[in-house]
Design a protein around this nucleic acid. Structure first.
Length: 777
DNA sequence: GGAGCTTCAATTTTT
DNA sequence: TTGAAGCTCC
């Protein structure tokens, strides 16, 4: 019983209330994971069979952590009859991975092959691009990423392509937005995925719903199996996830959801914060537990975060507090350039490390967008500080890895269209773009999978030349020969065989001479094969056959954060705020706090969007245990030119008594007199010394009003980004010089102007990027 | 069919 | 600045 004594009163109450609908609102740092894991341990101790427990998380990382912590409690002998070894019967994982397993098990019910492929975002976009082209639509109007977002939103709201096509309201909406063909694209996309035996990320949710909806016996089976359901990060569930959980829980209503409305940051992916607010409607007799004591951060950090989040209208009232000491104030650092920001933050980091004898792993640098990592990487490298960047391109998304995986995919699912397109001519075997296009279109016209076409040219004649046809047939024969080995060779043997016979290994080996990047590619392939070996060994240890198909099951669902850590964990972590959720660090640097970057300019359209950015800020600050440093740069170098920016509103929103504005360092504080070219003259000031040469310093905000871009500063206090432009205005463009606006079109961020420049002719430019200055005649 | 060059456009977060 | 797409020439 001892482990229960480690809990405070509300935590313990939440742990012990294992029957009936339960909602736990867990403030940042309040021991949420502890409650979840102890609850599961407690259930098992009470005699509940782990086989009947389902725990759903959003990330593999969270699932893994829970698994480990439960095993630890089990090892302490606290779980009674169902000990640690039984814990492996728990069903625990991300929505996507748990559902994908259920779907494979029941695949034939909904017409899919057991070894269906999971398309990642890249695959989906590539397929959409093809479809848009085949439908002869303008890919400027129908951008694959935009179309995918739209389709994704539909599926997350459980709307199928056919329902979309039949819904007048949606169709009218699309017509209004001048994208009337979206429905047709959606329909074609669904058909093509189905034909290819492929599901995209959203299908894993949508098809799960269809399975439970259309097959009562399946629903009944899983209701009986999952008598106890736990959902982590409930605030991030979308409508599809919400509905599925509700269906599964309907028989027993032993459902426990844990979340924090203040940390809902995934609405762009369809997450609906209302699911938390509606819990009481769905389960009127639910029990609510609030975890409000923060064990993580200093008082200053907790209170600073609270002072910001208090500005949100949408929230559940709660009081996060801490018994921890006051700690230091939050430092605010302003620098002139993004490179300078990198240097100063890293210097600061090094200072803290030396002063406190901290480890590198005690530090995290958090930013809004992945691309911001660059300046910090450079600075860290220069100082020889070990670091690791999370997110960005994951191992499994690297070109060479995807190429080899495409062979694996094609081997276990011949119909996989995206895998086919990827490797039919890689390594080069003389099958050109025209040929591939012809085949893809022909297969659509015949209404059959590409594979069926290329293995039955007699039955389905296609207009391609003979040599190409022979080469394609050769390719198909090769894939078939791989498939024939699926049951005979283990994943490692077959994987290696494919890497060799496909020619990929040789191709990459030959390119190794070219440079370090090519060497890395080759090493990545070796690493993947190493992964196959590891997988095979671990299976064979328990006397199971390790098939390549099985290895492929989860690969599409793995992300960078899931690749196992190197032995040496002592490095500084760099990541987006999104991926920092659920983590904590003694020292946090929250960088790039500038208007239009954070909050992102994409998120300023509405109150709800701005509130989400504010929650994101809240998440970031509450990652910090001991110290939190905020920084922003007055200018930023992006896509070839320098832009200036103002400090983020979120800095102003923190109650000033928790802040300490750092005195500018050397080279800082010179105000940018108007007319001076920003961005030149500052880059080269660093000569290794950090102090001296203090010039008079303006207050942190004084620069912004005088900046060089009329477009982005519309006067005191007004942080809007739009300046009024009218047809007939004379404007100045950086490159094209003076011109006259002849036409305006588009709305919001898409607003474009056609401008006639005497020396360059008429140009149509996105106002957002054009960087125009209105000038007098 | 494919390599190499030129042009053009581009900003978020991730399972 | 980066990356993708289009175009030219072998």
């Amino acid at each position: 019983m001892s482990y229960l004594d480690e809990l405070n009163q509300s935590q313990r109450a939440a742990v012990e209330n294992i029957y009936g609908p339960t909602m736990v609102i867990a403030g940042a740092g309040s021991g949420k994971t502890r409650v979840l894991t102890y609850r599961i341990a407690y259930m098992m101790e009470q005699g509940i069979d782990p086989y009947n427990i389902l725990a759903l998380t959003f990330t593999n990382k969270a699932a893994k952590e829970m698994q480990e912590r439960i095993a630890k409690i089990g090892a302490s002998g606290a779980m009674g009859y169902y000990g640690a070894s039984e814990a492996k019967h728990l069903t625990m994982g991300t929505f996507h991975s748990v559902f994908s397993r259920v779907l494979r098990f029941n695949a034939e019910r909904i017409g899919y092959p057991i070894n269906f492929t999971i398309y990642d975002t890249q695959d989906s976009k590539s397929l959409l691009k093809d479809i848009i082209k085949e439908l002869k639509l303008d890919d400027k109007v129908y951008k694959p990423s935009m179309v995918l977002n739209r389709i994704s939103a539909a599926k997350n709201n459980l709307i199928s392509a056919d329902e979309y096509l039949a819904n007048d309201e949606i169709l009218a909406e699309d017509r209004m937005a001048r994208r009337p063909e979206l429905a047709r694209i959606f329909k074609a996309y669904s058909e093509r995925c189905f034909k290819a035996g492929a599901m995209d990320f959203d299908d894993l949710l949508y098809k799960m719903y269809v399975l439970l909806r259309d097959f009562p016996d399946v629903l009944g089976y899983y209701q009986q199996k999952f008598q106890y359901i736990l959902v982590d990060e409930y605030q991030d569930t979308n409508f599809a996830q919400y509905t599925i959980v509700k269906m599964l829980a309907a028989a027993y209503e032993n459902i426990c959801v844990v979340g924090d409305d203040a940390q809902s940051i995934y609405s762009f992916r369809g997450a609906n914060i209302q699911n938390i607010f509606n819990f009481k409607v769905d389960y009127p007799d639910f029990k609510l537990f609030k975890l409000e004591q923060n064990y993580r951060s200093t008082k200053n950090i907790v209170d600073a975060a609270n002072s910001v989040i208090a500005r949100n209208v949408d929230q559940i009232k709660k009081e996060v507090w801490t018994e921890n000491g006051e700690g230091q104030l939050l430092n605010v650092i302003r620098t002139l350039t993004d490179n300078e920001e990198g240097k100063q933050i890293v210097n600061r980091l090094y200072d803290i490390k030396t002063q406190e004898g901290a480890e590198y792993s005690d530090f995290a640098i958090l930013y809004r967008t992945n691309k911001q990592s660059r300046s910090f990487e450079e600075a860290l490298r220069k100082m020889n500080i070990p670091y690791k960047i999370y997110g960005g391109i994951s191992f499994y998304q690297r070109k060479e890895i995807k190429d080899l995986l495409a062979y694996f995919r094609l081997t276990s699912n011949h119909r996989d269209e995206e895998a086919f397109k990827r490797v039919i001519n890689y390594p080069k075997r003389g099958i050109g773009k025209t040929t591939i296009e012809t085949i893809v279109i022909a297969s659509t016209n015949y209404g059959i999978p590409i594979w069926d076409l290329i293995t039955n040219f007699q039955q389905y004649p296609v207009q391609i030349n003979n040599s190409a046809r022979l080469k394609i047939e050769e390719f198909a024969t090769m894939i078939k020969s791989f498939a024939a080995q699926l049951d005979k060779l283990n994943a490692y043997e077959l994987g290696q065989h494919i890497a060799k016979s496909s020619g990929i290994l040789k191709e990459l080996y030959d390119e190794k001479e070219k440079g370090p990047e090519e060497v890395e590619r080759y090493q990545n392939i070796e690493a993947l094969i190493g992964g196959l070996k590891e997988f095979t060994d671990s299976k064979e240890e328990v006397d199971e056959f390790a098939s390549l198909s099985e290895f492929m099951l989860d690969v599409a669902l793995l992300t960078d954060a899931d690749t196992t850590d190197a032995d040496d964990k002592n490095y500084v972590s760099l990541m987006t705020i999104h991926s920092s959720k659920g983590l904590e660090f003694p020292h946090v640097f929250l960088v790039g706090l500038e208007e239009n970057l954070f909050p992102s300019q994409m998120a300023l359209q509405s109150r709800t969007e701005t509130e989400e950015e504010r929650r994101l800020f809240y998440v970031a600050v509450t990652r910090a245990m001991k110290s939190c440093t905020l920084s922003y740069a007055a200018t930023r170098f992006q896509w070839g030119s320098v832009t200036s920016s103002e400090s983020s509103r979120f800095i102003d929103e923190i109650d000033a008594k928790f802040l300490h504005h750092e005195a500018p360092q050397r080279g800082q504080g010179r105000s940018l007199s108007s007319g001076m070219s920003v961005g030149r003259g500052f880059g080269g000031t660093g000569n290794g010394l950090n102090k001296s040469l203090n010039t008079p310093t303006p207050s942190p905000h004084s620069i912004s009003q005088r900046n060089l871009k009329p477009l982005s500063s519309a006067g005191d206090g007004d942080k809007s980004t739009t300046t009024e432009y009218k047809v007939g205005y004379n404007v100045l463009h950086e490159r094209f010089g003076k011109g006259k606006i002849t036409k305006l079109e588009g709305q919001g961020p898409d607003k474009k102007a056609t401008i006639f420049f005497p020396h360059h002719g008429a140009k149509t430019l996105l106002l957002r990027f054009a960087n125009l200055t209105v000038v007098e005649e």
